[in-house]
Design a protein around this nucleic acid. Sequence first.
DNA 1: TATTAAATAGGAGTAATTACTATTTGTCAA
DNA 2: TTGACAAATAGTAATTACTCCTATTTAATA
Lengths: 136, 136
Amino acid sequence: MMMDFDEKSRQHQLKITPQRTAIFKILTTARNHPTADNVYQEVKTEFPNISFDTVNRTLLTFAEVGMIEVIESNGHCRRFEPNLKTHHHFYCVGCGEITDFFHKEYDNLEIPENISRRFHVTGKRMVIKGLCDKCI
Amino acid sequence: MMMDFDEKSRQHQLKITPQRTAIFKILTTARNHPTADNVYQEVKTEFPNISFDTVNRTLLTFAEVGMIEVIESNGHCRRFEPNLKTHHHFYCVGCGEITDFFHKEYDNLEIPENISRRFHVTGKRMVIKGLCDKCI
DNA sequence: TATTAAATAGGAGTAATTACTATTTGTCAA
DNA sequence: TTGACAAATAGTAATTACTCCTATTTAATA
């Protein structure tokens, strides 16, 4: 997995720094959809002097080259998605928690022609909304 | 339409104030997916002394009772959706603009059983990502 | 191992949102 | 109608999330 990291970094001309390595490692084992601050707090235990800006910029850089994804956050702070396999989201409108799920039937649905004609489509995701058991 | 507003307000025990009436009217004619500040700027022409907090709280209140919807915003500021008809979104990862579209094939897809069992589902939406012509 | 462009830490600045408080207003029951 | 009261408002302060700036350090390369 970290081999992946070095390889992907070289692919995109990103320098491999200890900070970036640590951030990426945290992402691969992250609880669901961490915020920049979640990652910052965790990486600080290893690099007490790391700045929030470094963490945040690194996450945005990773997202820019496609190593992670920025996901919908409904007005709260930005969340990152380390899971790049095709999948879908359940979003709890109560607590804002996002749960990944897989469902083959959604994966291969066709893009409507009036969208594929107007836009350059790179992906799609079903977002199901509702309440989790804690919020009912 | 404004009759709707009075009716819905009473349904949810919301007091009908001139400020709320104006905000709702702006929403019904809004350009796509206004932010709280968009609405604030517009309502200020009618109520120069209205506070941002009133506008923001009102929008959240409307969303809470289901008169509008809060939509995915990928880390930028919160956006509101006045269109309650079943529809889907194209999201431009370049400029962040969200375009509504209708597509019957997506509307009646079944919710996977492992989701409907775990959660109380209230809605679903296909979110297609990519670049608009301005951002390619 | 010297060069150089990129990355970092630290802090300042900005934008979006939320909290607080005194005052005003809409609703409902008498 | 009117009076009581809970809810809503304006104005402002505070907080949170994010971005920008600059001097210094570091990774990649040749």
